[in-house]
Computed example of a mutant assay.
Amino acid sequence: MRKLIAFDDDTFDKLKQLGRDRMATIQELADEAFADLLRKHGVPIDLKDALRKSASPSNAPTKKSTASMPSKPRAGR
């Protein structure tokens, strides 16, 4: 999918220079920047990342303690 993003001249010049320094294209720099942004906000980047996140221990369901639950009255007492 193709989308356009506008940069001011100074920012674009700095991005071009960074690309030259790192031997990367503007597209590669943009891919890295957007992946970092998504990661920062906890959005999975791809299927592998989504599976890893869903399998992490912090996402595991927790069991509620039965000690804090009121006991039910028993019939016949």
Rank of each mutant, 00 (worst) to 15 (best):
I45Q: 07
F34I: 15
R2K: 13
L4P: 01
R74T: 03
F7E: 05
A6M: 09
M1H: 05
K14N: 08
D21P: 00
D13K: 14
L51P: 00
K48L: 11
K64Y: 11
Q17Y: 01
D10M: 04
I5E: 02
S71E: 14
K64R: 15
L4F: 08
H41Y: 15
L29A: 01
F34G: 01
L18Q: 12
P44C: 03
S56W: 01
L15N: 00
G19V: 01
A75N: 05
P57T: 03
R39Y: 05
E32M: 01
A60W: 15
F12A: 11
T62C: 09
Q17G: 00
L51C: 10
K53I: 10
G42C: 07
G19L: 00
M69T: 12
A33N: 08
D10G: 02
L38N: 06
D46L: 10
D21K: 09
T62W: 09
L47Y: 14
I26S: 04
A75M: 04
L47V: 14
D8C: 02
I26W: 00
R77I: 03
A50R: 15
K16R: 11
A50M: 15
P61W: 06
N59E: 15
G76Q: 03
A75Y: 03
K64H: 14
S68P: 02
T25Y: 02
D46T: 12
S68R: 06
N59W: 08
G42P: 07
E32N: 05
K48C: 06
G19S: 01
Q27V: 07
I26A: 03
D9Y: 04
L37E: 13
Q17N: 08
D8L: 00
T25C: 00
R20Y: 04
L29G: 03
S71F: 06
D36N: 13
D13N: 12
L37H: 14
V43R: 12
P61R: 10
L47M: 14
